[in-house]
Amino acid sequence: MSNVLRYAMTGALAVVGFIAAQSSHASVVIGGTRVVYPSQEKEVTVKLTNQGTKPALVQVWLDNGDEKSTPDTAKVPFTITPPISRIDPTKGLAIRVLYTKEPLPTDKETLFWLNMLEVPPKPADSEGRNLLQFAFRTRIKVFFRPAGLQGDIATAPEKLSWKLVPADKGWALQVNNPTPYFISFAHVGIKTGDKIVGDEGGGMVAPGGNTTFPLKDVGSPASDAQAAFDVISDFGAISSMTHAVTR
């Protein structure tokens, strides 16, 4: 484990005991809410920007879905350059993500996660003082997209099928995805007339998979009920859609 990560974990543990007494926020932000890696590209770049007033040290790595991963334990077919960087206030940095060509499915997307750990520098006057250091970890999705996939990501949400299914506390919406693309949602609910109810947030459905979304405080849905959902595009834009449901 790198010294950066050891230092960050020490700070993160301190935060756990102090979170109720003080709030803070990360200074370095990632440009975009997701990364798409077309398989034919040699590399993609991701922009980091320090919006704070002090320098920040960041460490970046990818994982395949394990939230507890570290740069030492994550096993993915990518390398990142540079993996550790200092970013001065108001400055930016472009990191390079390179696919190392280990075999991945060619008929559907594969999901990875980009992790950014930000560690603030120690204050210059910290000698002999007890200080609380905060470490911030950000994770965003990375979609590895093979060339020549059937269909198009822009029209993939139209091909979803939706079904109302009984749930422990009422009803849920089950979505089936016949496309080779991951489809992300900002919101999922049920629409009857002009009213949308049951929305408990968003989620995602994998290629060829299905996901069930519980509907909050929904009684027996009307016969004209429709699935109402907000789809998140490659660029982070949100589009509202409706679709007929089966039972």
Rank of each mutant, 00 (worst) to 15 (best):
L173I: 13
D168P: 01
D168T: 03
W171Q: 09
K169L: 13
T179C: 10
N176M: 10
T179V: 10
D168E: 12
S184M: 13
A167P: 00
Q174N: 11
N176D: 15
K163M: 14
A172T: 02
V188A: 09
F182V: 02
W171H: 14
S161E: 14
F182H: 08
E158F: 06
K169F: 06
L164A: 08
V165G: 01
E158C: 00
Q174T: 05
V165Q: 05
N177C: 01
G193A: 07
K191R: 14
F185C: 02
N176Q: 13
I190K: 04
A156S: 13
I183Y: 08
L160S: 01
V175C: 03
K195W: 06
E158L: 12
P157S: 04
G189V: 01
I183L: 15
I183Q: 10
F185Q: 00
A172G: 11
T192S: 15
A167M: 05
K169N: 12
V175M: 13
K163S: 13
N177P: 01
W171L: 03
P180W: 10
K169D: 14
A186C: 02
T155N: 10
K191Q: 13
S184L: 13
G189P: 01
I196N: 04
P178K: 00
T155C: 05
L164N: 09
T192L: 09
W162P: 00
K191L: 09
K159Q: 15
T155S: 14
D152W: 02
E158I: 00
A172I: 04
N177Q: 06
D194M: 15
S161Q: 12
S184W: 06
E158S: 11
